[in-house]
């Protein structure tokens, strides 16, 4: 697994400069393969994609340089701006649902002790499933006919079958809920670990001071959990912003565009309509938004850590 310098001598037995030089050489050798693979498979296609976004390519036919035409027509199209808006609604809607759920789950896991581990394990099962499989599964459950599971549950409460995926108001919350169903427990793991880091003595001291449960939560748990929450937020933000399989599988972006996020727009334009120049332009826009989100979170994380010394 690890390549070793042939000499067998170790850096710290040599003079300091030698050691530094040898260390750099070994370090570079060890990091090299990972960097090369990542650059070859991620960065090169990214550049090639950027190049393609400047060309007019339709159905695999490259019709030449197009300058910024793809971007111009993209931003002139009101649907693009709506799609960006819906991406933000999807992303932050999912966060607003997933993070509190994950926090509740983490608190429950802590409270339940040994049984908490079982609960966490159960909650994590959907996370082990393929997104496309999850979409299929929920499509089947939400089948709006009397034989559907969801429809039958509604029927036992005397309600008519509801077709959530065909309802312009409900389609978005539904795809959000399905995405959260698959992923919220992942956040719960990290928050559980974060809770585990909080010294129990703090709670005991607070109890002695007569703080209520609510006060303990807001004055101890929340501030000390903040770094973990930020990590959860950053990981889930990226994951939700790029989510596409659940939307492909459940709503195809409809009804009336109500679930057409930017990620889905990319899929539709590039893979269905085969307007590949424009598709690559959307990919570039998505990448830039991702970058902004990441840099934002890294800043926040940095400040947080710095602030706490």
């Amino acid at each position: 697994m690890v390549s070793v310098p042939a000499s067998g001598t170790t850096p710290f037995t040599r003079s300091i400069e030698d050691a530094a030089r040898a260390g750099r050489r070994v370090g570079t050798t060890l990091v090299g393969p990972a960097v090369l693979v990542v650059i070859a498979v991620n960065i090169l296609p990214a550049f090639f994609g950027f190049y393609s976004s400047l060309r007019k390519i339709f159905f695999f036919g490259d019709e030449g340089f197009a300058g910024l035409d793809n971007f111009r027509s993209l931003f002139a199209d009101p649907l693009t701006w709506e799609a960006i808006g819906r991406s933000l609604i999807f992303t932050f809607g999912a966060l607003a649902l997933a993070v509190p759920l994950a926090l509740l789950a983490a608190l429950a896991v802590r409270e339940l002790g040994a049984r908490g581990r079982i609960l966490l394990t159960i909650l994590l099962v959907p996370w082990a499933m393929s997104p496309i499989v999850v979409a299929l599964l929920w499509k089947w459950i939400l089948l709006p006919s009397p034989g559907g599971l969801f429809a039958s549950i509604l029927a036992t409460f005397g309600m008519p079958p509801a077709n959530l995926l065909s309802n312009p108001t409900w389609a978005m919350p539904t795809v959000i809920a399905v995405a959260v169903w698959r992923t919220f427990a992942f956040a719960a793991i990290i928050l559980t670990a974060g809770l585990g880091q909080i010294p129990k003595d703090l709670y005991k001291a607070a109890a002695v001071d007569g703080l209520t449960a609510m006060e303990r939560f807001s004055r101890i748990t929340v501030p000390l959990l903040a770094p973990s929450i930020l990590i959860v937020l950053s990981m889930l933000t990226i994951s939700y912003f790029n989510e596409v399989q659940v939307i492909i599988g459940l709503t195809s972006g409809g009804p009336i565009h109500s679930t057409t996020t930017l990620a889905y727009q990319l899929y539709l334009t590039g893979f269905v309509e085969l307007d590949q120049g424009r598709g690559n332009a959307i990919a570039v826009v998505m990448f830039l938004i991702n970058l902004v989100l990441i840099v934002g979170y890294v800043q926040l994380l940095g400040n947080k850590k710095g602030g706490e010394g």
Binding site: L143, P144, P146, S166, N167, P168, S252, P255, I256
Partner: peptide
């Protein structure tokens, strides 16, 4: 109006259920 977002496959499933 409740079938605003139906694929041919959805229509088929529902037809099978007698809808």
């Amino acid at each position: 109006k409740t079938l605003l977002n139906a694929m041919g496959d959805d229509i088929q499933d529902q037809f099978a259920a007698g809808r």
